[in-house]
């Protein structure tokens, strides 16, 4: 998730002359610390102060990635993991959206359904792992279901909360113009819940990436999680770090995709983060 500057800083900063370089300088500032640390460690190993066996220098991590990529291994692992996250995320989103919408819209369903869902939510999702393996086997199904469970809860809560908090006054505008039920949903409720929905999608996706690691650590023959486990068992820290770096890149990339897809729909928002010119 992106972290924007607080509103106060945005206005108080020396933004009087928004020079072009500033647009790039700000994100670049965030890169400064990790780059300095990485270069520093590279230097320490290069100069021989450490053998870098347990904490391999960046060059070695990237060499590992390149090596995996060349052999075609890397894309196989990435695809396997992406498929699992994608399928689990899709499943969780569909279930969470439908149940969340029902609970938010219909009071009786909420009283009936919500306590159970909240109780299930209180269970650490990893506690399901043994059960899922028993029920669904050790292969793909149990992994995807585990990811879906992780994704489900934030989506469910987000959708339900968003619908419950739709402004009554805005709904009344729909009533004054005599919108039918479906029109009310399409023209008032959907746009009103969209911002909260996008946030819950992003939270859900983050949990999906978390759970794919757990799922692949259960037992897998491919996937980035498998690379982690393999690296641990064979004592290859560079491979573990390589997998972690790729996780970070993929996680950020997919999150960014959601943000990008939602941006044109959320231009109207009046929020801290909204830029004047947008």
């Amino acid at each position: 998730m992106t972290v924007d500057l607080p509103a106060l800083e945005q206005t108080a900063g020396p933004a009087a002359a928004p020079a072009r370089w500033q647009r790039y300088a700000r994100p670049a500032l965030g890169l400064l610390l990790p780059v300095v640390l990485a270069l520093g460690w590279e230097l320490v190993v290069f100069l021989g102060y450490s053998n870098g066996r347990l904490v391999p220098p960046p060059s070695k991590v990237f060499a590992t990635i390149a090596e995996l990529a060349k052999s075609g291994e890397l894309s196989r692992h990435i695809l396997a993991t992406l498929w699992r996250v994608g399928a689990g995320f899709a499943l969780g989103v569909v279930a969470g959206t439908i149940l969340g919408a029902i609970s938010g819209y219909w009071g009786l369903a909420r009283r009936l359904l919500d306590p159970t869902v909240q109780a299930l939510r209180a269970i650490p999702s990893l506690a399901w792992v043994p059960l899922f393996v028993l029920w669904l086997g050790i292969f793909e199904t149990s992994k995807i279901v585990l990811i879906a469970v992780g994704v489900f809860f934030p989506i469910y809560l987000g959708v339900m909360g968003a619908i419950l908090s739709v402004d009554r006054k805005i709904v009344e505008v729909g009533r004054v113009f005599r919108l039918s039920g479906p029109a009310m949903i399409r023209r008032i409720l959907l746009p009103a819940v969209l911002p909260a929905y996008v946030v819950s999608l992003r939270v859900g996706l983050g949990l999906g990436w978390m759970f794919v690691v757990a799922a692949e650590l259960i037992g897998a023959s491919e996937g980035l999680g498998y690379l982690l486990l393999d690296g641990q068992q064979l004592g290859k820290p560079a491979q573990i770090l390589a997998a972690i770096v790729i996780f970070a890149i993929l996680g950020k990339l997919t999150d960014w995709l959601i943000e990008l897809a939602a941006a044109p729909l959320l231009r109207w928002q009046d929020a801290f983060g909204a830029r004047g010119g947008a």
Partner: peptide, 8 residues
């Protein structure tokens, strides 16, 4: 209040 729809 004006009650304009903020997304339109």
């Amino acid at each position: 209040e004006p009650r304009l729809l903020p997304w339109l």
